[in-house]
């Protein structure tokens, strides 16, 4: 059993949120939503490689890759009309990319609750981010299973 540990990248993002007043945290989430990188062409051409995150109200798809050096790359796509979902995806992409598979699997699944935005976005919506995280971990686990 992997010991749970929030990696520094995600801890920094969390602290960025917690330093703000509650109503300003939504603005930060919006900034994250704008930073979600476009998916690489070969992924865009083959949407089947993506897993749909059913926990999210908007159509969001994720795909994790594990490179030979064991680092994880997460791709995510969500429509512009779903900025909250894009924000969640962007946090995970920025916080997860470059981590080792082991580090990704160690992320506590309640990380989304630690951002201090549950009340501002509603618990139902934050559940979508948890869905993204758990599915990412499941993909990484499947990719690294020996």
């Amino acid at each position: 059993m992997t010991e749970l540990h929030t990696p520094d990248t995600l801890a920094e993002i969390r602290d960025e949120f917690l330093e703000l007043e509650e109503n300003e945290r939504l603005q930060l989430l919006l900034e994250f939503s704008r930073e979600l990188p476009p998916v690489p062409d070969d992924f865009a051409a083959n949407p089947d490689q993506y897993e749909r995150v059913a926990e999210c109200q908007s159509p969001v798809f994720i795909a994790a890759e594990v490179a030979d050096d064991d680092t994880v790359v997460l791709h995510a796509t969500a429509p512009a009309e779903a900025p909250t979902t894009r924000g969640f995806a962007s946090i995970l992409v920025q916080g997860i990319n470059g981590l080792s598979a082991e580090e990704v699997l160690a992320i506590p699944s309640d990380y989304p609750q630690s951002l201090g935005i549950t009340r501002a976005v509603s618990p139902l919506r934050i559940a979508g981010m948890t869905g993204m995280l758990v599915r990412t971990q499941r993909q990484v686990r499947a990719l690294t299973a020996v």
Binding site: L26, Q27, L29, L30, S33, Q57, S58, A80, E81, A82, P83, T84, T85, G87, A120, V121, S122, R125
Partner: peptide, 9 residues
């Protein structure tokens, strides 16, 4: 809206 941030965009 359904999305809590859509207005802000």
């Amino acid at each position: 809206d359904e999305d809590v941030l859509l207005y802000e965009t």
